[in-house]
């Protein structure tokens, strides 16, 4: 790339250093919304959690909110991690498979791509509602299958949070497929076609071509899925159970408590959730560095 720089008269290119400076400036301007949200959201949440930004009452620095929520935290963290990990795991497997089918092309591949895009477009709130209608004890699925409500397993509000995980996995597998397929569409053909011509089986192409190329997109999108699932509450609230409470559900319940002082505790849980999320990002970063295609 060192050959760039001074060029002949015929080349109207502006000075690349200047161009870079312009791009960098543009990028900084573009980051302003993100900075506003991170500073505003995270900043005020941290301040609120340590008592520096009360809605009512005196400003007083304390870690009371962290201490008072501690007893219930262990089971909540466990529940949240179970939901997020299980949802992410299923979403990765199905999302990657979907991307593979879409990238492989064909009419069925296009249909899978389209219906996956439909799934991405459904808001989680609606996804939870329709998943509830489908999987409830006397929902559409048991009715269609002719299974009595008493014989149907407790998927909605059951001990394993199955309906919650199914909703997240459903939506997020479509998301992962979209991201991974988007990255690979132009790329895989270059490698896959020659591999196919050389007689590689479908399984071999999946292992040798598709997965290595897909790994970075897969890791990034899986990380987004994990931290999104950890931080959002609607699905777990609608399809989950009363006890134990996932972190986000506990945070929103405390946030909406009649007493405004509970908002400090809600903020403390939100800060904790962000901390877990960032730990997940760190793990992903390590995994990313190991993946060969990433620069």
């Amino acid at each position: 790339m060192g050959s760039r720089g001074k060029r002949g008269m015929a080349n109207p290119n502006p000075d690349p250093v200047n161009r870079l400076r312009g791009a960098r400036l543009l990028l900084i301007v573009g980051m302003i919304p993100v900075v506003v949200v991170v500073v505003g959201g995270l900043g005020s949440t941290i301040l609120q959690s340590i008592g520096l930004m009360p809605l009512v009452g005196p400003v007083r620095l304390s870690v009371d909110a962290y201490v008072s929520t501690a007893p219930a935290l262990l089971s909540s963290i466990g529940t949240s991690l179970w939901i997020a990990a299980a949802s992410t795991a299923v979403a990765i497997v199905l999302g990657a498979t979907t991307a593979f089918v879409v990238v492989s092309g064909g009419r069925l591949g296009r249909i899978v791509g389209a219906i996956g895009a439909v799934t991405v477009s459904v808001p989680h709130l609606i996804g939870a509602a329709t998943m509830g209608l489908l999987l409830a004890d006397s929902g559409v699925l048991p009715r269609l299958l002719g299974i009595d409500a008493t014989a149907w397993p407790a998927l909605v509000a059951g001990p394993w949070w199955v309906a919650v995980i199914a909703e997240y996995a459903w939506k997020e597998s479509a998301f992962i497929a979209l991201v991974v397929a988007g990255t690979l569409l132009t790329r895989v053909a270059q490698f896959d076609e020659p591999a196919a011509m050389l007689g590689a089986s479908r399984g071999a192409r999946l292992r040798m071509v598709f997965l290595p190329l897909a790994a970075p997109a897969l890791i990034v999108s899986a990380t987004i899925v994990f931290i999104y699932t950890l931080g959002s509450y609607e699905v777990a609230w609608l399809l989950g159970r009363t006890y134990p409470e996932p972190l986000a559900v506990m945070a929103i319940r405390l946030f909406n408590d009649v007493s405004l002082s509970s908002r400090t505790e809600s903020a403390a849980i939100a800060v904790l959730t962000v901390a877990i999320s960032l730990a997940a990002v760190a793990v992903a970063a390590v995994a990313m560095r190991r993946s060969a295609v990433w620069r």
Binding site: V35, V39, G40, S44, L47, M53, V56, G57
Partner: peptide
């Protein structure tokens, strides 16, 4: 500077209604 500015603005919002 951006971060500090943002934090200041947020802090200024501490007053309870």
């Amino acid at each position: 500077a951006t971060l500090a500015l943002g934090a200041l603005v947020a802090l200024a919002g501490c007053a309870a209604p």
